[in-house]
Design a protein around this nucleic acid. Sequence first.
DNA 1: CCAAAACGGTTGCATGATGAAACCGTCCTG
DNA 2: CAGGACGGTTTCATCATGCAACCGTTTTGG
Lengths: 153, 153
Amino acid sequence: MTRKRFDDLDCSVACALDQVGDWWSLLVVKEAMLGTRRFVDFQQRLGIAKNILCNRLNRLVDSGVMSKVDAGEHGTRYEYRLTDKGRDLFTVITALRQWSERWNGNRDDLRLVDRISGHPIRQLRVESDDGQPLTVRDVRFEDAGAERLAKDA
Amino acid sequence: MTRKRFDDLDCSVACALDQVGDWWSLLVVKEAMLGTRRFVDFQQRLGIAKNILCNRLNRLVDSGVMSKVDAGEHGTRYEYRLTDKGRDLFTVITALRQWSERWNGNRDDLRLVDRISGHPIRQLRVESDDGQPLTVRDVRFEDAGAERLAKDA
DNA sequence: CCAAAACGGTTGCATGATGAAACCGTCCTG
DNA sequence: CAGGACGGTTTCATCATGCAACCGTTTTGG
């Protein structure tokens, strides 16, 4: 049986996980954010099998998260770079990193700091439109259809 | 071959993915945030196989993301609830949702709104300690010990 | 009070995904 | 021009997944 697809769930979260929700994809993206661009470097730094890395890079290129550019003048030297869509995963990866550091302790040698000031970055937080912090208890999932019905009535 | 473990990578992101980084775990957590608590409800709403759901719930309980409470007076009626650690994944899931809506379009019937005002929530953004927005290009990974800088992106 | 259904699983099976290693064609490098 | 680096592909053993059937307990309907 093939893995269940999430894109039929009519859920943005499921749709996102369909693109970057497997064991390796987000780590590849994170490694790219550290500056890694070449196949062998991804392979060695992540310790991933070559066939799996090949599969993941192809899928990330297919879904528009990374792009494969010919950087070798003569055809066999490639670079994999983040697209704007891929760079925008910075928020997701930062959220994961902060969550893990809060609850599992900091297992990382590297601290994420502002390049200019050298200060650590702020904790991410979900906010209302007037800037107040929101927890999961402070939000609800409003049915857009019901909203339309209510306005029609 | 068993799946490669990430907890030896000395990376907080890898450590997080080790706990919630598979195809189903974050969807189970998201479903719990919508209010789902019982086994059959998770199963039906997500369309997940029972043995896989059982495995995921057990792993989420083991890693402290959810707790299994006996809600049935007589022993066979259980509820699975988010712990504080699990509720704190709200930021991660919100980041994923916003990313997906930005780049894949809104495939969701449900809009996430402030429970009180009914207004949509703010876009998450990574900020420096003085509140300026930061992209991945504006940060570096500072080695706590040496002064090894991340390569330019 | 009894039968049936719900609940929360467990087991078996077929199939897909993964990891390790070997192999391969092209390019560059000494 | 030989050897190695690069970017894969192939093969194979093992693991994970999805599906359906089954099961013991508890609740519910008549």
